[in-house]
Structure formats: C-alpha cells, structure tokens
Design a protein around this nucleic acid. Structure first.
Lengths: 292, 292
DNA sequence: TTTCTGTCTTTTATCTACAATAGACAGATT
DNA sequence: AATCTGTCTATTGTAGATAAAAGACAGAAA
C-alpha cells in the first residue's frame, strides 16, 4: 500500500452519521467543509454511498434511500492514522515493557513489530524526540532516556514556570475575551463530574488536558503552548497506566481545579498564583509517586 | 545513490591530517575512536590510502609512504551532510528570499530545488518544526509562520525565563564544579577578542553561543538546554544576515558578558540576576531592531 | 590474556515509485 | 452572479529497495 485510506474511512464513518439525520445531503464543498476533507474524498464517500444504495446521487441531488446499518460502518481500528498506531505501540513498549533507560531503539525492529514501513517509524521517532525521552546517535540507533524521576522533575519544573506565567496572563485578560466563556463551560463540566464522581471519575483525564491547555493559551506564546503537548502526552499515558486511587486522586484534583478557576475569576494575581501553585504541587506529587 | 558517503569523505579528510604528522598509523579501533566512526569506515579509508600509495598496509603495519598533497583531499562541499545542506538552503530561502508569513511550503518543490529526495526534506521539516517557524497542515502543505516580531518576542520571553533561572542555578554551583573552569576559559576568550576588536569582532557569534549554552546547562534541565537550540539557530542566522553596526554591537555585548561573568563569580544571586537581565534586554533590542 | 584483523550481518540514510488526498479550472446549474 | 460539478494535475504519506555505515564474532597476532 502506498498510503492508507484512513482519511477516507474516518470521514466516511462520520458522514454516515450525518446521513442518519437528514433526507438529503448538502453540496460537495459544504460536506468537505463539515468533514474537514477535500472534495476528492467527499466524492469518494458519495460514490460508495451510491454503490451501497444508501443514496441516489445525481449531480446536486443526493437523496437518502435508507438508514445506515451498523455493518455499513468501517471498523474503528481501520480509521486510526498510522501515526496514532505507531505512537500507541511505542508508548506501550516504553511504559509497560521493561523500559530500561539506556536501552537502544531500533527502527527496523520497531517497524517489523508494528507491521509498518521504516519511513513512518523514523518520522515518528523524529517527532517524538522533542519530548526528551529519546535521543539519536547519528548513523546509528536511538537511545531511550527513560521515564525516570529526573525526567519528571525536569518536566514539572518547566511546567510550573510556564503555567504560573500563563495564569498571571489569564487574570489580566479583558472581560470580553472568549477564554472566560470557555472557563465557565469547563467549570460546569467539573461540577458535573464531581456530582457523580463514582461513575464518572475516568472522564477527568480529558477535562484536565482541556483546562490546562486553556490556561497555557492565555500566554499567547507558541513555545509555551507547544510545550503543553509534552505535558499532555506524559499525563495522558500516565493516567492510562497508573490507576491506583484514581477516584480519590481525580476528586481531589477536580476540587483544586475549582479553587483555581475561582481564583482566576477573581482577577487577583496573588490568589491565582497561590491556587495554581497548590494544584501544580499536588500534580507533581502524583506523578512522582507513580515512578519507581 | 542510496546514502551519501559524506561520513567517509569527512573522516578521510581528517585522517589525512593525522597522517601528515606521523610515520605510521595506529590500530583500526583506535583510529575509529579518534575519528568518531566505525571500523568499517576506517578500513575504507585505509584501503583508499593504500590505493593512492599514501601508506603501505599490511595487517597491523600502516607505514606512511608520502606526505598528502592538497589534491588528495575531498572538496569540502562534498563533506557536508545532506541535513546541513538542506538546512542552509532552507534558511537562505526563508530569511533572504521574500519570506511572507502565511506562505506555503511545498516538500516536492523544495526537494527539486535543492536536488535531493523528498524523504530528506520531509524529515528536515519535521525536525525544524520544533523551532516554531513552520506548521504542518496534515495531508497538505506546510505553512511558514515567518520570522516576525511576535516570533521574536515569544522567543525572547521564554529565553529570559530560562536564562534567569539558569543563572540562579549557576551562582549556586559548588566551587569544584567544572563549569567554573569553563567560565574562566570563556572569559579569557572574551578579553582576547576585545583586545583586538576591530579585527576579531566576527568571532563573537560563536563565543556568544558557547557562553549562553554554558549558563543554560547549569539548569540541569533537558528542556531548558534543548530550548537553547532554538535560540542558537535564530541568533546564528540572524548574525549572518544583519551586519549593520556589527562591530559596535558585538563590543557592547562582550562588555555585558564580562559584567555578567563577574556577577556569576560573585555567587550573589541578586547581582547575577541584574547582570543577566541587563544583557538579555539589550540582546532582545538588537534582535527586534533587525525585524522590519 | 588482551588487542587486533578478516569476514559477515544488521541497521541506517536516502532514493524512487505509487495510491490517497488535496487542489485547480472550466463549464454547468441555480 | 454565485455556487456547484466534472475532470484533471500536483502533492503527500508510505512502502520497498539499496549503498553506506555500524557492529558482531571468530580466529590471528602480540
């Protein structure tokens, strides 16, 4: 295969859902807009709909003939991009499987194991190297630096500098800045989860990322915002990996977030700093506890 | 060509210089060590030396037969790695040639222009993207964000946070830490250049990088040290590009460095912070002046 | 015993090829 | 006049192939 058609499959699945709600589909450019793909892909989707007798397609008319059935969808495994597959495989290997610092990483072996070409693995490793967990020896292998205590300390040190600065900027945002509305929305989500914490505590991870990203964005600094990717990926896999006391940890973090949100709302830099520090400190402790 | 043999050519040239100074060459592993290449490459070099009647090679004996002539060397253009060539080409394009922010970057076109395969260009762009000057639209082109005023401000904001913190760590280093010896050496280089500033002011750029890297390393934080790459590349090309008042600018920066070095030596955090701030402020102004 | 060389295998860096996807343009439709 | 469709071209993402470089191992030399 030269290129996976995951863009097509994923857009196709999403388009099937749209189809369930109407009697006829909009124009090709509009569909492309909604699905975030080019017209070429839209037309491929429409052709397939026609083949499967889902629609009658004649130029501008795209009338829905029947409701989609579960087996009209592509399996979700087939809609993940290669990059996502490689990332998951790789993270599982280095977090779960004995990931000794100093271990060598072999592109060819990794590619064989994942069942993909070397090019994609190589590009993934280059992109991934900015997370500071691996390092390249030119003309030779990569070295795993490992998810160690030092790594976590270095990461949190920078995180704290950046987030404190971002929080300081946040309190100074004008009242009509859209970030305030988003903050309100995020606060509501917090209260929703807290109200039913026993069943919904797993939703915290995603919300955590959303909240901190919003704060970092207030910095208006691309380096600070980009660095949040590093934090997000580490915490993302960390949550998947370390589930001890997840309910209590998450409940506490939600409370801290609420205090932090209120402090931001106060427009008082000193209060915001204090709430931010308190939360970051406990986030750091949680992360460190999970490292042997 | 599958792979350039620039490693061979570069090591070969360096080995020729070694050869000029002795009557016989050391063992293969030792040569590999000295040149930083594998035995395979060492043996390729020795084979060529033998072919060109530069040495008589019989197992452990590698006796020098004649002195190398200038035409024994490979031309220096052939010893640059592809990555270096691509980087230079690219930087020239985006700094010199009308680099409008928002411009599209096309992998194929870039590859054709540089005369290389798309893979190498692609990998370069991925590596380069961490500098925050370009951004990828998946399944589509890259976008040049441009060397704009905002870029410079965002860059210097983070630089100042990181360097202030690093300087604070530096003053607290124990007296037997090797950084102090390096600092002494760097200080001597500063005085050397200042003493003959009219002829040697061009050497400042390299020294500047060395000095600030030393300071950043005191942070013991990989993210802070890695970020210095971004600063270094920007200032490196900036110096090549903007030569107005170079002599005065550099003389002033050298004096600021000396004050900064003395402040670090004092072990007084407040003095160090003040000297650091003063220098960073003027570095920022210089950078901003060069942006339209 | 230790270090070196000869030989062989494995891996990386790079090119080329090709399907998937994006995107451009002219003529058709509203 | 504005938007849409049909058709065509160009670019990206990925696999596969191959020379260069790294590296492993056994036997030779010190």
């Amino acid at each position: 295969m030269a290129k996976q058609n995951t863009v097509f499959k994923d857009a196709y699945n999403r388009c099937l859902k749209l189809l369930a709600d109407t009697s006829s589909l909009p124009s090709e450019p509009e569909l492309g807009q909604v699905l975030g793909v080019s017209r070429t892909t839209v037309r491929a989707i429409l052709s397939r709909f026609e083949e499967l007798q889902l629609i009658a397609w004649d130029k501008r008319k795209k009338n829905v003939l029947r409701q989609p059935r579960p087996d009209d969808y592509f399996p979700t495994e087939e809609t993940d991009s290669l990059a996502e597959i490689i990332e998951r495989s790789f993270m599982r290997r280095i977090l779960a499987g004995g990931a000794e610092p100093g271990m060598q990483i072999n592109e060819l072996e990794l590619a064989r194991e994942i069942g993909t070409g070397t090019t994609s693995v190589r590009e993934f490793l280059i992109r991934f190297s900015r997370f500071g967990l691996i390092e390249k020896r030119p003309n030779s292998h990569w070295i795993l630096k490992g998810f160690t205590r030092e790594f976590a300390l270095e990461l949190t040190e920078v995180r704290e500098m950046f987030e404190l600065r971002s929080a300081a900027r946040f309190v100074a945002l004008p009242d009509d800045h859209p970030a305030w509305a988003e903050l309100t929305q995020i606060e509501a989500l917090h209260r929703g989860i807290l109200a039913d914490i026993d069943n919904r505590y797993r939703e915290f991870s995603e919300l955590d990322e959303k909240f901190h990203l919003l704060v970092h964005k207030a910095s208006s600094n691309r380096f600070i915002v980009d660095f949040y990717d590093v934090i997000a990926i580490v915490f993302h896999y960390h949550y998947q990996w370390n589930k001890t006391n997840a309910r209590e940890r998450n409940a506490r973090a939600l409370e801290e977030h609420l205090a932090y949100i209120e402090a931001l709302r106060s427009h008082d830099p000193a209060r915001a700093e204090q709430a931010c520090r308190r939360h970051l400190q406990s986030a750091r402790e949680t992360l460190l506890q999970s490292i042997p």
